[in-house]
């Protein structure tokens, strides 16, 4: 076991982990931050996407010990300061960007990663950026629409599908 210290959603957190402890296991099992989901555990589905030092990472494919001293952001830290949904989360609700909701934390974190570097992405850019996030229910249309809306773009012309 080794001791690690990570800044998670702005708060310093310490813990003791095995070498093999995955970052997502540390978040979910040790810290009870269960908003980050494990869909496939094989780096395919992206439900476990979080931000590590400001960039999107699949937390099922990174060891917790590797994040020692790093800054980590999860879905639990995405809300506005007053506790309301942030603009991406609100857009997912407004545009029905989810059905079962299992992939949603990863979708929101990937969308945030995209919008940080590209404030008004095209539909094609959004779809390309979501390459590593798999949703089995929605068919992606409303997810793409929600992300476009979150970026302040007019989505009234995009038909509901």
């Amino acid at each position: 076991m080794q001791n690690i210290s990570i800044k998670i959603n702005g708060k310093s957190v310490s813990g003791s982990v095995e070498g093999r402890t995955l970052l997502v296991e540390f978040l979910r099992n040790d810290l009870n931050l269960t908003g980050t989901h494990v869909g496939c555990d094989t780096s395919q589905c992206g439900a476990c996407t979080i931000h590590v030092n400001g960039v999107a990472v699949k937390s099922c494919t990174m060891f917790a010990a590797e994040a020692d001293g790093f800054s980590v952001d999860t879905i639990e830290g995405q809300e506005n300061a007053d506790g309301s949904l942030n603009k991406i989360q609100q857009a997912f609700q407004d545009h029905h960007g989810l059905q079962c909701g299992f992939c949603t934390p990863g979708m929101v974190m990937s969308a945030a990663d995209l919008l940080k570097n590209n404030s008004t992405p095209t539909e094609a850019e959004i779809r390309t950026h979501l390459d590593g996030n798999i949703c089995r229910c929605t068919g992606y249309h409303n997810i793409v629409k929600a992300i476009m809306a979150a970026s302040g773009q007019d989505v009234s012309a995009i038909a509901a599908e």
């Binding site: 780096s43 996407t49 590590v52 494919t61 990937s110 990663d113 390459d131 590593g132």
Partner: peptide, 9 residues
């Protein structure tokens, strides 16, 4: 290569 999150690691 891979997808955006994979490319970050």
């Amino acid at each position: 290569i891979g997808d955006p999150a994979v490319r970050n690691r």
